[in-house]
Design a protein around this nucleic acid. Structure first.
Lengths: 213, 213
DNA sequence: ACCTGAACACCGTTCAAGT
DNA sequence: ACCTGAACACCGTTCAAGT
């Protein structure tokens, strides 16, 4: 059946604790299969096998393959956004340079903490539905960033949302490229530092000093 | 058969002119189906139907579905890179701000010239093999950018390749976000302008003035 | 409540037969 | 040289039957 013709969300919620364990093992198996076989070899049967259940069980909790992949992707991205939000909360009222550095570093580090998984999950990014999810989570990050930018003690931004958008999204490409190419740690570290410089340079250019022009 | 177990490149080359037409119509049909039905409804039979040929014919020129998608994606990206390369060639020996502006604008405009197609093609980005292709073309762009940065009349860069990498990749995220969200033209224009500012601010920070410190 | 796995439909790919 | 389309294998999804 065409997977896009049905609602994707209404996956069943586990009621008993043994099934909560089942669902979690299916998610784990999904990532493992993704890492071991790649996205195109990822089969619902294979995931179920690896999880030690039958396909039927998988379909009791995930209405289709895509919803499983999106669920796994969402959990990953949610963790990343959570760390960005924490960085924002922690740098309120700091100067713009510090804010820029902490935010960029938070995103960067969250992505590279488990680089293999991050990389494998990019493979999901195409399935229709993923863009929407990514957009939604990106907006959450932008809200946090924008709110913090407004508190910068040494800068006043005319369009904090736009600055937040650029700050949040400009990191994506460089990071994605590093993950995909499997760059060595030294290069990763160098680019992390360079990204911070870029973010700071941008905020310096985009925000005016509040008192003295 | 698993699509990843066989070499993907050796697709047949058309010899007679009528078959050259056939191949081109298959490529066109592929984009049309992508736009009309989306990536997950894109079926080799559907593409062949739309192209007015049989599936068998499609498989004479493309060893499998993925190679067709990659071919279409490659043509698109190649065009984009070509425009970036042209912008680089045209701004040699200009000042860093001009170089930054022309390069960012070239990429931006190439992507938004046919925004629908650009957006639809992101759906391919996942198929294993696409990351490699994207990486390869991104490197081509970076070489061009790096070479031009070295000629900037008012700046001297310690690591022109790194600056080129950041300049090239930092545009990807913002543009992708705009395409996916279908942002209105006004917002697109505003962000285009802001991206230029960011690129310029970064080059100012990353490159030293040659004579007077 | 939860699990199983054979059965069904659809799609990628092939190949013997045509022009 | 090029094209056709029925045939085959594999995978997503379902559902009747089990505990």
């Amino acid at each position: 059946m065409p997977p896009s013709s049905r609602p994707l969300k209404p996956r069943k919620r586990p009621v008993q604790s043994r099934s909560a364990f089942t669902v979690e093992s299916i998610r784990d198996a999904c990532i493992q299969v993704l890492l071991a076989h790649g996205a195109e070899r990822l089969t619902t049967t294979r995931v179920a096998d690896r999880a030690g259940v039958s396909v039927g069980t998988l379909y009791q909790y995930f209405p289709n393959k895509q919803s499983l992949l999106l669920d796994v992707l969402e959990r990953h991205l949610d963790g990343v956004v959570r760390e960005v939000e924490a960085a924002c909360a922690a740098t309120r009222n700091a100067d713009a340079a510090t804010i820029a550095a902490r935010i960029v570093e938070a995103f960067f580090d969250a992505k590279f903490r488990d680089a293999d998984t991050s990389r494998a999950l990019y493979a999901i990014g195409s399935d229709l539905g993923a863009p929407a999810l990514v957009t939604r989570l990106a907006q959450r990050a932008q809200r946090a960033v924008g709110a913090t930018l407004r508190t910068a003690r040494d800068r006043r931004f005319e369009h904090p949302e736009m600055a937040a958008y650029l700050l949040s999204t400009s990191v994506i490409g460089p990071v994605q490229g590093l993950l995909e190419s499997g760059a060595p740690a030294a290069r990763v570290a160098a680019l992390r530092h360079e990204l911070v410089r870029m973010a700071q340079a941008y905020l310096r250019a985009a925000g005016a000093r509040p008192r003295s022009a």
